[in-house]
């Protein structure tokens, strides 16, 4: 009975570490996907593709948010509302959300030079967010290790 209890306690500690770590590691994946999507979008728009066509081969995360923007516009929403809806889907951080809002608002009317400027500005926001997310990811690894260590320590003490 005691052994089962100790094993459960050990498992619980490890699980808590893994879950807390996973929460902190999730934004990094999303931001990396978003950066890859933005790069592919940039290449496609540079060769004359429309927004919808440019988003097609991009990562799901980026394409879905662009679709939200285009659908909102086609349903008659104002630019600010459409940009708000698209950027709300960026759950990463406030900085990424406001960067996304600046990227989207008026995107449909932007001339080529302005589009390029927006891509660069949003790319810079995502690059900063990636650095932050990498730090978080390191913390996640620490949390996972801490969970394992606490579990092991408690198990040794109780035995």
């Amino acid at each position: 009975m005691k052994t089962i209890g100790i094993a459960l306690l050990f498992a619980l500690c490890c699980l808590a570490g893994v879950r807390l770590g996973a929460k902190k590691a999730a934004p990094l994946k999303m931001i990396r996907a978003m950066r890859a999507g933005l790069q592919s979008f940039s290449d496609r728009t540079a060769s004359g593709a429309t927004l919808a066509d440019a988003a097609e081969p991009a990562d799901d995360a980026f394409r879905e948010r662009l679709s939200v923007y285009l659908e909102s516009l086609s349903q008659g929403s104002a630019q600010a509302d459409a940009a708000g809806r698209a950027s709300a889907a960026f759950g990463a951080s406030d900085a990424v959300r406001s960067g996304a809002e600046l990227f989207f608002c008026g995107l449909s009317d932007a001339p080529r030079a302005e589009l390029q400027r927006r891509i660069e500005a949003f790319g810079a926001v995502l690059a900063r967010a990636e650095v932050d997310a990498e730090n978080e990811s390191k913390q996640a690894r620490v949390l996972r290790s801490a969970g394992f260590l606490v579990g092991t320590g408690l198990a040794v003490l109780l035995l």
Binding site: T45, T50, L51, A52, L73, S108, A110, P111, R112, E114
Partner: peptide, 12 residues
Amino acid sequence: RRLTGYSAFAWE
């Protein structure tokens, strides 16, 4: 906007 597929830059 509709005519340009919401992509003014593509028709510059």
